[in-house]
């Protein structure tokens, strides 16, 4: 249990470092910003108390905000995502439900399930984030394209890092 918490804290620090030090300086074509740090929220344990999930999401978003100089924007997007996460997980649950200590992962649930799970969550996060940043509805479709493109890039990054970091034996164990 303690080890698991340590792992989560370590993942938080690592993903934040990558986001703040590297990815915030990456602009593909001037409009696409990958937000890999969202992966931290996506891979939290499924049975995590909901209130704790919200609190963690808020802190995560605020940390990114401080470094990006966008007070509140990432926090708001993360919160909405965390709010909708339990419901969405319930909707796409496997027939026999989740195990008590499972976390969403590509090895455990397979590529297809993981992409379905992540893409919806990422779209929610990115669309809200980009719209708050623009703060006007007159360019909604322009913003929407940016959000969708950015979510795609983030999704690819998340899938790659999942393959790089998770142990291949996880699936056999379950």
């Amino acid at each position: 249990m303690i080890i698991e918490i340590l792992y989560i804290v370590l993942r938080f620090v690592l993903l934040m470092a990558i986001q703040v030090l590297v990815l915030n300086n990456v602009q593909l074509g001037g409009i696409i910003n990958p937000f890999l740090y969202v992966m931290f929220l996506l891979t939290l344990p499924i049975q995590l108390p909901k209130l704790l999930l919200l609190a963690i999401a808020f802190v995560t978003g605020l940390t990114v905000d401080v470094f990006q100089n966008t007070m509140g924007m990432h926090a708001a997007a993360c919160l909405l995502m965390a709010y909708l996460r339990p419901g969405w997980l319930k909707m796409i649950a496997p027939r026999d439900g989740y195990e008590t200590d499972a976390s969403p992962g590509i090895r455990k649930f397979g590529l297809r399930w993981f992409i379905v799970y992540c893409s919806v969550m990422l779209l929610i996060h990115h669309i809200l984030l980009f719209n708050i940043e623009m703060f006007r509805f007159s360019e909604f479709f322009n913003t929407l394209t940016r959000a969708i493109l950015s979510s795609l890039v983030t999704l690819v990054l998340i899938v790659i890092s999942q393959y790089l970091t998770s142990k291949p034996t996880d699936r056999n164990l379950s």
Binding site: D65, G72, M73, A76, L79, L80, Y83, F135
Partner: peptide, 11 residues
């Protein structure tokens, strides 16, 4: 929490 965020953004 969300209203707090919105407050931050608007401010």
């Amino acid at each position: 929490l969300q209203s707090f965020c919105i407050y931050l953004v608007v401010q």
